[in-house]
Design a protein around this nucleic acid. Structure first.
Lengths: 151, 151
DNA sequence: TATTGTTATACTCTATAACTATA
DNA sequence: TATAGTTATAGAGTATAACAATA
């Protein structure tokens, strides 16, 4: 098999693993009243909260998208929007006690699923996997996405 | 580092690689008038077309979702709905010539991106990656998702 | 009765554009 | 002028429920 074909095969296996992992995390989070994007937002909130623009930058999302995610979390009672004393345009998103609990549950869900997925790999394979994926990520860093053709 | 922590680290790397791969494929498909789910549907259509229920079963989607995807492909001129001579309830989804071309472009996009992502890995790493991911998939097969708790 | 695919409805994630309040 | 976040609008993906046509 050629190297390109092997690359495609690896990518397909990766897609398959990811889809199943994602599905398991999604289902478990749903039972805990969360979605993956919302759980990530909870995870990004420190103790002092965070302006929405910082979330947009951190997750590379449009401001409107952050409004949507924060709306959902606020409806669920997991965050509150609080005024920023230094800049009246800013609304700081802060965790409620329920939000902190939800975040802890989400973290537990995540590590449980990761263990379900990778738990039976021998240490050597796990280390190899980490090394190879790190290399792939570095390759992606070094080869940014080409912009759309202009012609 | 514990094995569980390594599992979490591997999962995070995997998520990161996947997200970037997915983003590149998405962007390239957008330039070709497609989305990932729609491209997959195109790929599943043989020469004789396919009833929508078969697509729903194949991709594990609700019938309503298939209606939506096929609507989009039909608007783009990539598929047509044709009556089934044997069962008047059934609408067979068939590729148009444009649809065939779009599918070919999508396949090319996919393998190009896969090569961008994995193309610089040494053969040994690629083979290891394939072996390890195959094992993970087998582990997932052997450990189906537990149903939601009933208490 | 069961199946195919629809309309009706809804939720989430994502986005752009126009706008308000503020800096 | 520029920034933060909103409303308005849109499109994609996903779903359930009710329904019509057909088997």
């Amino acid at each position: 098999m050629s190297s390109v074909e092997q690359g495609v095969q690896a990518a397909e296996l990766l897609l398959r693993v990811m889809k199943r992992m994602r599905r398991r995390v999604d289902d478990a989070l749903t039972e805990h009243g969360l979605t993956l994007p919302r759980a990530k937002v909870l995870g990004a909130l420190g103790d002092e909260g965070c302006p929405q623009a910082a979330l947009a930058a951190h997750f590379d999302l449009a401001p409107r998208t952050v409004t949507e995610l924060v709306d959902g979390l606020e409806r669920a009672g997991y965050v509150e929007r609080q005024p920023d004393p230094d800049d009246r345009r800013v609304r700081r998103v802060t965790l409620t006690d329920d939000g902190r609990e939800a975040h802890d549950r989400a973290a537990h869900v995540r590590s449980t699923v990761m263990d379900q997925v990778f738990g039976d790999l021998p240490d050597e394979d796990l280390q190899n996997l980490i090394r190879i994926l790190t290399r792939v990520n570095e390759h992606l860093d070094a080869n940014p996405q080409p912009p759309p053709a202009q012609g």
